[in-house]
Design a protein around this nucleic acid. Sequence first.
DNA 1: GGCTGTTTATCGGGCG
DNA 2: CGCCCGATAAACAGCC
Length: 476
Amino acid sequence: MSSAGGPPSSGAGGGGAVPTSNNNPNPTSNGGGSMSPLARSAYTMNSMGLTVGGMSSVSPQAAATFGSSVLDSAAAVASMSGSMGAAAAMNSMGGNCMTPSSMSYASMGSPLGNMGGCMAMSAASMSAAGLGGGYGSMPPGTRDMEPGSPNSMGRRGGVDKPTTYRRSYTHAKPPYSYISLITMAIQNNPTRMLTLSEIYQFIMDLFPFYRQNQQRWQNSIRHSLSFNDCFVKIPRTPDKPGKGSFWTLHPDSGNMFENGCYLRRQKRFKDEKKEAIRQLHKSPSHSSLDATSPGKKDHEDSHHMHHHHHTSRLEHHQHHKDSAGGGVALAGVNVLSAAHSKDAEALAMLHANAELCLGQQPQHVPTHHHQHHHQLQQEELSAMMANRCHPSLISDYHSSMHPLKQEPSGYTPSSHPFSINRLLPTESKADIKMYDMSQYAGYNALSPLTNSHAALGQDSYYQSLGYHAPAGTTSL
DNA sequence: GGCTGTTTATCGGGCG
DNA sequence: CGCCCGATAAACAGCC
């Protein structure tokens, strides 16, 4: 690319956390009406004033309220944003993910950003702070200005006075990476599998920002799905005709956002097997496997040629942490080995899974189990999924990341303020609607997922598994 | 043809 | 400063 992607004017080119959406080419190709009154109200809710105050003391009950469907997502989102601060602070994990950028988001629009310090509060309040502060300040109609437009909000470079960027970012880009968003979407679905279009829908339902420039971000979503090993494509079964495959999370992807940072993972999840394949493809010397190779898979390297050793580095990273950790679970690995012991464990792991994905503390990854267990690969996953069962459910990887496991530091995933466990119920919250959460965060109250999964509460999911509620395991 | 997926290429930013 | 991650663009292939 000569000219490297062209003039920045179009916002082309990468970068960064603050993308910029120029004009909205196709504002609502899909959205028709997706903007429910609820959504509006949500938007209207301004910066946290609302919530923070009111919810500061979110009772368990309240928490429970957020447990379902969209709410979950909202909660998840909220928690994500909240965790940006909370997680970092609470767990001293070293995860300072409070990068300037995230901070800026959090603080955007209001002093609340500083709440990071107060995160002692409940997740809900946090979320409110985070989301409300970040987005939600403006009524829907006012979205004239492009939220991340360079001009409007100059980047963190401090280009502009902090005062300028304030509110009005109704549709500011959410402080979540696409990977986070996808994870959120998948996790939010009871089946833990979503089609591409459902992922799109989830995102748009939750974040108005993404109702614009769909072409652009959807391309990115697709790229993320394909490019990141943490997402696994599950072919559609004949009995379920439709378009596109299902996407799920790799059972070993575990907690990609361990530090509560949803903009950037500390490490990119790598499926060792796939990685190995890539390596093979790229290194001519080993054509051991197939001569038929198309030779396209090296993309990882070609993509990041400069850091092809990253893998080792990453592992190194991980191991390091693990060892430090002490004890807990590994992120996965032996998957098939215990594939039979589902039940309670399954749920447990289910939790873990959610937990991990939504942001919890670092688990330990047993440094070297990979070689033996990484067997569960796509085919297997596919097979499992074909049965509508998420691999994670079957896999015993739960054993590795058991939710019950305590963090060495005393922190447990369950204890994580934004832990999904906390949000999960104790009872049926399936009926809860977004309006409930409208107070939750400015961002979510949107239309409930129209998708079926939305209708299903997570508890439903659990129930379907024969599990009632993560009661004991959770602090709830 | 449009959607879904994959792959390549770049750029920008964060972090050690 | 180099490595790595994420965002974005875009070419392409396959499928419905």
